[in-house]
Simulated scan of single mutants.
Amino acid sequence: MMRLNYFVLNDQYIEGLKKPVKDHVKVNSSSKVTFKSRGYPYCHNVVKPYWFSWGGLPITMEFARKHDLANKWCDITVIDQKGKEWLLPLRHHKRGSSVYIGRPHEFLVVNDLKPGDPIVFELIASGDFPKINFYKLN
């Protein structure tokens, strides 16, 4: 059984966003799957079965706090690997316990995501109109 890392955070500042310290991330120790950063902050996660029924795509709270996404209640543009832009709601629980992208069902299906797939969110714009690139790692 492979053990996957659930997220990676990076702490170097550049132009108001944080730049990764490493230029790539290995998803797990026994895999050759890597993500090569383009210089933007990113986090990665592994698709969970409950994402399909719950109606949310979680963003790690630590990443959300560091990049001013934690208290947002707005739309976020998610750009998939085919270049399609998805305008989805960015939400947070009132107690500040989690941040998530809402209504992701069609996004998950169109991008052929299945439980266990490693994914990366790369924040390319923050502020009032956040924008992220989405990568499914194969």
Rank of each mutant, 00 (worst) to 15 (best):
M2N: 02
Y6T: 09
F7S: 11
F7H: 13
F7T: 15
L9T: 15
Y13T: 05
I14Y: 06
I14T: 04
I14C: 03
I14S: 13
I14K: 08
E15V: 00
E15L: 00
G16P: 03
G16T: 03
L17N: 02
K19L: 03
K19I: 03
K22I: 01
D23I: 07
H24C: 06
N28H: 08
S30V: 10
T34Y: 00
S37F: 02
C43P: 02
V46T: 14
Y50L: 04
W54A: 15
I59C: 02
E62Q: 14
A64I: 04
R65D: 07
H67Q: 15
A70D: 09
W73F: 05
I76F: 08
I76Y: 07
T77Q: 11
T77K: 15
Q81I: 14
Q81V: 10
G83F: 02
L88A: 08
L88V: 14
H92F: 13
K94C: 00
K94S: 08
R95N: 13
G96Q: 10
S98A: 12
G102N: 13
H105V: 04
F107I: 05
F107K: 10
V109P: 01
V109T: 13
D112L: 11
L113S: 11
P115N: 13
D117N: 14
V120Q: 00
F121H: 05
E122V: 02
L123T: 01
L123Y: 03
I124Q: 06
G127V: 07
P130I: 11
I132P: 01
N133T: 01
L137W: 01
